[in-house]
């Protein structure tokens, strides 16, 4: 366990500053989009995307391509496919998503086993390597995060309408497919950016936990969105502090903090509901 002054010293380093800037922005993106994903029952899409992202990252590491340049387009295309699968009634949508998601892991593991074997690179892809960020990575992530947040705010009311009642929106002439695709693309970008810090196995939780926690205590959509954003950012910050202080992996620690917040909020909501009845 480090002392407070030692923690602050670490936070002064460049690698830590980069991690915090990107981490906070990506947490914010994930929390905002997560509200729509959870309410639209698209929660599994985040998981599916990150697992496919794992396969792509594994391949990128081997053919020596910058991970972001390869994974961004591939994960975006996957997002489109998952969206179609999730909405289709002909085949079991959720099974199809689970299928793609586990296949992603399998392909990734096979590629790794045939080439380098399980090494540090693969561990980093699975569980995150937030401190290994270059300056270019940081700028790229910051710009993309700001684009995601900007588009979310600009199309907030469309995303609400499509999430709340797709049939009504469609019937009154709203181009539902465009906004659903927008949601999928924004999610894909967020997942790709977030994989770096949280790892392929944990990034989806950044979209789910803040929204679910916020929904325990908030009744209006806007307050759920705002609360989720605050929870996402605060949990990331606290998680990073613990991660540094206890020298445990940041991704898992952030998820751990989110889990505790979720349990506390669930408790509060039980008490409130119990009190009113």
């Amino acid at each position: 366990m480090l002392s407070i002054s030692e923690i602050f010293e670490i936070f002064g380093h460049t690698f830590m500053m980069r991690a915090m800037v990107v981490g906070l922005l990506v947490s914010l993106c994930a929390a905002l989009l997560g509200v729509n994903l959870v309410l639209k029952r698209y929660a599994m899409i985040g998981t599916g995307l990150s697992h496919v992202g794992f396969a792509v990252m594994a391949i990128a590491g081997i053919i020596d391509v910058a991970p972001l340049t390869l994974s961004l387009p591939v994960v975006m295309v996957t997002a489109f496919i998952l969206l179609r699968l999730n909405d289709s009634n002909k085949i079991n949508g959720d099974s199809a998503v689970a299928l793609i998601s586990t296949s992603g892991i399998a392909v990734g593991v096979i590629v790794v086993a045939l080439t380098t074997g399980i090494n540090l690179h693969i561990c980093n892809v699975m569980f995150g390597s937030i401190f290994a960020m270059t300056q270019a990575d940081m700028y790229f992530s910051v710009v993309l995060s700001i684009v995601v947040i900007g588009l979310f705010v600009l199309f907030y009311k469309q995303l609400f309408a499509v999430t709340y009642d797709e049939n009504f929106a469609k019937a009154t002439g709203v181009k539902v497919e465009i906004y659903k695709s927008l949601l999928a693309i924004l999610t894909a970008v967020t997942v790709v950016l977030g994989m770096r810090m949280m790892g392929a196995l944990l990034i989806a939780s950044l979209t789910l936990f803040p929204a679910l926690s916020a929904m325990r205590i908030c009744k209006r959509f806007l307050s759920v969105v705002i609360a989720a954003a605050i929870i996402g950012v605060v949990c990331f910050f606290i998680g990073m502090m613990f991660s540094v202080a206890l020298d445990i992996p940041p991704g898992a620690t952030v998820v751990g903090v989110n889990l505790i917040v979720f349990m506390v909020f669930s408790g509060i909501s039980l008490v409130i509901r119990g009190g009113t009845k």
Partner: peptide, 30 residues
């Protein structure tokens, strides 16, 4: 089609959707 008001049958997802009355009504203006 942008001038038709529609009252669909409710689906189960809406029953637990966190949205205020104002937010729902206002979404008709989209």
């Amino acid at each position: 089609s942008t001038q038709i008001g529609y009252l669909p049958q409710q689906n189960s997802a809406q029953k637990n959707f966190p949205a205020s009355v104002t937010e729902v009504v206002l979404s008709g203006r989209l």
